[in-house]
Amino acid sequence: MSTTEKNIVLHVDDVHKTFGGLHALADIDLQIEEGKTHAIIGPNGAGKSTLLNVVVGRLSPTRGAVVFNGEVLTGKAPHQINQLGIARVFQTPEIFPDLSVLQNVMAPAFAKRDGSFKLNFLSSLERQTDIRDEAEHILHDVGLYERRNTHAGALSRGDKRRMELAMCLIQHPRLLLLDEPTAGMSRHDTNTTIALLQKIKERGMTKIIIEHDMHVVFSLADRISVLAGGRIIAEGEPEEVRSNPKVQEAYLGGAHL
């Protein structure tokens, strides 16, 4: 593969992860190209979420390294990894249920503007108009502007996911990791989310997306890696992957999809 002239944002280099005797990930090599949407698909238990957790620093790999823009991520704390420009949407919505929707979106913006810690206990939250305006703007984009003052805990699951997406987008990350961004959404909400993600793609944001919904994968992905049993069994353009017999056997054929 002639990846040398392309701009690779993230290198996953020979990553292994074992839990006790279980090989959750083995020989994982991935190259994520700038501006592209890279989907990782695979049956349940294939190691998709483990791979994301290794990238964001929640898990450290048993062997191998993850390199982002020339920086080795292995051994860095989650907040340091985020500060380098990697944001993540979780599989089950991870939000601040006691804060308002607007405040949920403002919190990551402070991390982006002020760094991982700032002693700002004398400044007024009300006067952070730049961050508030941006948060309102992004809430508009995801369709939650009208609900900005409600308790985030009171949102529906689909709305929570969209809010979490807004929490990531406000940071303008260089790499956005999406762990099943449309799980638990209605067909209508799924389509709105796809449209939104396509809009971000036009802005040139790099994304890694884990998804079960093939409709979502084939409408968004530029490239697909298929994970099964902790190994990458196929990689390529959506059409290549769709017609790959190994993939059909391991995933598409084995399941009812």
């Binding site: 944001a87 991870e94 991982s116 929490m167």
Partner: peptide, 12 residues
């Protein structure tokens, strides 16, 4: 409510 989430949002 969610200390972990803040870490992933870049806040130490």
């Amino acid at each position: 409510t969610n200390r972990n989430r803040l870490n992933y949002a870049g806040i130490n």
